[in-house]
């Protein structure tokens, strides 16, 4: 099958996909909002670690300012820069299907990774493991499961 086709030279740059056209100022405004969120995502966790003494409160602040804002930033990029809202619906379904696959992987592997012992097994190597963070030694958090 040929990989070329005849078409008029005037084929539109966007093939009718210009329903999402905005003035440049719109995108600059979105970029500005993203930068403000970037500042919050850095300042929030820094302040939480330095000012807040309660560990749980600090954790919640980090969770919201770092990861919560990352999700909002990602949504803004997908919606406003990638124009997912005016794209064919099946593209959205395709991307969601991939996220579901990712969730399945995490759900399937998570119980083994997050826990070091179960009903009839113990991962002793993982339990004993201490990260040689500052020493530069080699390390492996996962040994063989002992039954």
């Amino acid at each position: 099958m040929s990989d070329t086709a005849h078409a008029p030279a005037s084929t539109d740059a966007a093939h009718g996909h210009d329903a999402h056209a905005h003035p440049d100022s719109f995108y600059i405004r979105i970029w500005g909002i993203l930068l403000v969120m970037l500042v919050i995502s850095v300042a929030g966790p820094e302040l939480a670690h330095r000012v807040v003494s309660n560990e749980t409160v600090a954790f919640v602040i980090v969770l919201f300012t770092a990861f919560g804002i990352a999700i909002v930033k990602a949504y803004m990029v997908v919606k406003n820069f990638m124009h997912i809202g005016v794209e064919k619906k099946y593209v959205g379904y395709l991307l969601i299907a991939m996220l579901v696959l990712m969730g399945l992987m995490i759900g399937g592997v998570g119980p083994d990774v997050l826990r070091h012992e179960g009903h009839r097994w113990v991962n002793q190597a993982a339990k004993d493991y201490k990260l040689p963070g500052d020493t530069g030694h080699h390390g492996d958090a996962h040994g063989e499961a002992k039954h």
Partner: peptide, 21 residues
């Protein structure tokens, strides 16, 4: 879509290990 699975796998694995260790 294929990249979501690749990076999702890496980031998901990192997240699980980070929480577990």
């Amino acid at each position: 879509a294929s990249e979501i699975v690749i990076f999702g796998g890496v980031l998901g694995s990192y997240l699980m290990h980070r929480i577990g260790h």
